[in-house]
Nucleic acid binder design. Structure first.
Lengths: 229, 229
DNA sequence: AATAGTATGGAACGACGTTCCATTAGGAGC
DNA sequence: GCTCCTAATGGAACGTCGTTCCATACTATT
């Protein structure tokens, strides 16, 4: 007896949130931010968009979940080091490497404001910050400063990855272009940027990131000026 | 004599890049990042998408141009203050206020890597950093740290604005939700975040931002440890 | 066997960025 | 004056996206 349409073949294994998140991470790693679409996801999981939406509210939630899975994996690697400073340094470097390897994490983090992935990072930074002797009333701003710095670097890294993918030029080509552009800036209006053009070509992102962390750590250690009132 | 189709009525005034950028800024301010579409832009300028594309390469370039116009306007307001520290503080606060008033600038900045708006900020930070006595070899990382911190805050602000617009809840509602969520976290796994839940509700973004700038300034002023090698 | 709730796969909708194209105004050369 | 050429315009059309909808099929529970 003929049905109205051919019956769609059903899967035997159940689809699950974790399966979907794992597939999303694969897609993001393979094709960048733009690679995560419900069509590509459907094909990869041999299903339809509707089935995915049964487990996931929307794309943003999926992106945050993928980001959280990766951040959680990254943070569990970070053990405590000899000093609180070294713990923070190691933690920050682990995050940098993770974001560098998966640039989409940078932009996903920025959109996951008070949610799990950020909370995890906050928590991991919290203990060493307390161990540094930062008084309770300063802990909020201190961890915030570190977090914002890391987010800033992460966001830049995400933009870098996105640019490289869409423009099709690799990192050194891009840096060469920027360096040349800065060299050609008006020397009266932009003397400082002109002077930095050479470093655009030769700098090392990872070293610079760590130098920034060290700078902030020095700021944390420095005595605070007396408050007003 | 009848033509194939009604002749489209032509404008007498010329469309220009500046006109388009100005209209884009209006749309972004009025309706957020998602408010800038070529359809809305076409309607506002009483033209078609094709005419806009004659002056602008693509949406990303338009967004960067809008961002640059606003950043340029913001930075020209910033005069030099009594001390280099105060100059940096004033500059950073001007940027914060601009991003706070126009949240889309935060995410536009992140995507405009080596381009004009970033160069402008870099340049404005460069002079006071030199005046602080930062040696030439450290200026790159120093200005980078400040820039990344500002970008991080900007990105968070952008996400905030986007969230508020799409979810339809205002800032205090959102903070209340986050604070409640953090209070409900597992006290064993997340003691630090739990302890910060109250501050989520009561903190002041602008003050915290300035506290972060001060922290970094203290780090800049602190003596650097001797290098290896 | 009947039913209710859970889960699936794919079609359809509306909106977006971008491309294409027919058309027009304005000036240069004659 | 007229013709050409180019800069510019306005809107239709294309392909893709996130999301919604719905007919269908499994799986317990009665």
């Amino acid at each position: 007896m003929a049905r109205k349409s051919a019956a769609p073949q059903r899967r035997t294994d159940q689809l699950s949130r974790d399966t979907i998140v794992a597939a999303a991470i694969d897609l993001l790693d393979a094709s960048g931010e733009d690679g995560l679409t419900f069509r590509a996801l459907s094909e990869r999981l041999s299903t339809g968009a509707g089935a995915i939406y049964w487990h996931i509210a929307n794309k943003n939630e999926l992106l945050t979940a993928a980001c959280d899975a990766l951040i959680a994996r990254t943070l569990t690697m970070s053990a405590t080091a000899a000093t609180p400073e070294d713990t923070i340094r190691a933690l920050a470097l682990n995050l940098f490497d993770a974001i560098d390897a998966h640039p989409w994490v940078g932009s996903a983090l920025a959109r996951a404001l008070g949610q799990m992935p950020m909370v995890r990072i906050l928590e991991s930074l919290g203990r060493p910050i307390r161990d540094l002797g930062v008084p309770a009333r300063d802990q909020w701003t201190t961890v915030g400063a570190l977090l914002n710095y890391i987010l800033g670097v992460g966001g830049r890294n995400a933009a870098n990855g996105q640019l490289a993918r869409t423009q099709g030029l690799d990192r050194s080509d891009f840096l060469e272009t920027v360096s040349a552009a800065w060299s050609g800036l008006d020397p009266v209006a932009f003397p400082f940027a002109r002077g930095l053009a050479a470093q655009v070509r030769t700098h090392d992102d990872r070293e610079d990131f760590l130098a920034g962390i060290d700078l902030i750590l020095r700021g944390i250690a420095a005595p605070r000026p007396r408050r007003r009132g």
